[in-house]
Design a binder for these strands. Structure first.
Length: 163
DNA sequence: GCCAACGTTGGC
DNA sequence: GCCAACGTTGGC
């Protein structure tokens, strides 16, 4: 199983929206690198952190799974969609999306908290100038964040508390 | 193929 | 709303 981090602006599509919908097409990705990661990297059952971006409290807010492999993003064909791409055709679609399924909400693991842990310093989402809406997460990074979640509340690195 | 101009992302 | 950091576009 592979691990990912997927960004969404909560004002556009939030973890609560997905919690209601259960499964959703991850539409609107208009970046070739992110598209290629979905197309070539994602497998059924892969897990991803749902990340709220461009908002008051950016950070991880939930966990989702890949429920359908990449297929053409319908919004690119829709003239009325903000994601419409006149250069894309049904025969030769340019943009793809996977379907993701809701697993659970998590407490907010804020961008600030992520940055405080050395173990996560390599996470792509933390790198300067990063703009990719889909990024790979290593198994080690995934497990580390899962441990933070199990621990419950935010705590500075190096401070061992009760289990 | 270069690269300046432009558009977008996203934290702050 | 600002602006740094990118990605894309298009003239040459």
């Amino acid at each position: 199983m592979r691990y990912w981090l997927m960004k969404s602006e909560p004002s556009v599509y939030s973890i609560d929206d997905l919690a209601k919908e259960k499964t959703a097409a991850w539409q609107g990705v208009r970046n070739y690198q992110a598209r290629n990661l979905m197309r070539d990297g994602m497998r059924l059952g892969d897990r991803a952190f749902f990340y709220h971006s461009n908002c008051e409290e950016p950070g991880i807010v939930g966990i989702v799974e890949v429920r359908r492999l990449a297929y053409p993003d319908e919004t690119q064909f829709n003239r009325n969609s903000e994601y419409f791409d006149p250069a894309s055709t049904r025969r030769n679609p340019r943009w793809l999306n996977v379907d993701v399924g809701f697993m659970r909400k998590t407490r907010l693991v804020s961008l600030d908290e992520l940055r405080r842990h050395k173990a996560l310093a390599g996470m792509q989402v933390l790198k300067r100038g990063n703009r990719l809406s889909v990024t790979p997460v290593t198994a080690v990074e995934w497990q580390f964040v899962m441990k933070l979640l199990r621990r419950g509340t935010a705590r500075p690195p190096g401070e061992d508390g009760p289990p």
